[in-house]
């Protein structure tokens, strides 16, 4: 409405601006938030059913050794990936990419273990045996799907550098995929605690 110009109080003279924004990271963070909420709902359903049941779980609890092995795989993958991101920030691209490759391999290892565990577990507990089995397989399978997505993201970053110049720091796609990967790992920690450890320890 008015055209009088007041002295620009804004530091807009910092030109040229880099073309490098954080939209991707912020989107991943909100995506993780909604996914975390999904898993929270599934865990809440698990406890809700446990509360109403005389014996929980109503069937034999799952064996714990696979789950712990898989936990070791995922946790070490997260550590490697975190180290790799540090290398990338120090512009040691080769080391960072090597760490990324190791993480992808560990992720695939996790998926192979999942298949082994499931084929063993399915022979004692069918998926649609009862409410407990429904929920158990729902949660673990959904998590495995997330691991698969995570592996896809990491592989994508692995293939990216041919187009992404290495001079850009911090390496955004790397960082974003790593965020998601750490989230997937964290969920597994909760799954091990709730679905594997607790029924074996505190069996009512």
């Amino acid at each position: 409405m008015s055209s009088t110009y007041t002295e620009m109080p804004l530091p807009l003279r910092r030109q040229p601006f880099p073309v490098n924004d954080k939209r991707g990271s912020l989107s991943i963070i909100f995506f993780i938030a909604t996914e975390a909420s999904l898993f929270a709902v599934l865990f809440a359903s698990y406890w809700y059913m446990a509360k109403g049941a005389a014996v929980w779980p109503p069937d034999d609890p799952p064996k714990i050794h696979y789950a712990l092995g898989m936990l070791a795989v995922l946790v070490s993958s997260s550590i490697v990936l975190h180290w790799g991101e540090g290398q990338i920030k120090k512009r040691k691209v080769g080391a960072g990419m090597a760490a990324l490759g190791v993480t992808v391999i560990l992720g695939i290892g996790f998926l192979i273990l999942t298949v082994l565990e499931d084929s063993e577990h399915l022979s004692v507990l069918a998926v649609n045996h009862d409410a407990y089995s429904s929920l158990f397989y729902m949660i673990t399978t959904l998590h495995a799907a997330h691991v698969t997505l995570g592996v896809c993201m990491l592989s994508y970053v692995f293939l990216l550098p041919s187009v992404e110049p290495r001079s850009v720091t911090p390496h955004r796609p790397y960082h974003n995929a790593a965020l998601y990967w750490h989230f997937v790992d964290t969920v597994w920690i909760f799954i091990v605690l709730f679905l594997y450890v607790s029924p074996n320890v505190g069996r009512r």
Binding site: G52, H129, S134, M138
Partner: peptide, 22 residues
């Protein structure tokens, strides 16, 4: 909704009281 669909289509038991559902 996913629970509902699994119950309906593939005989899961999330909501089925006879099989410990709620």
């Amino acid at each position: 909704l996913v629970f509902l669909e699994l119950d309906r289509k593939w005989g899961f038991h999330f909501y089925d009281i006879a099989h410990g559902g709620h």
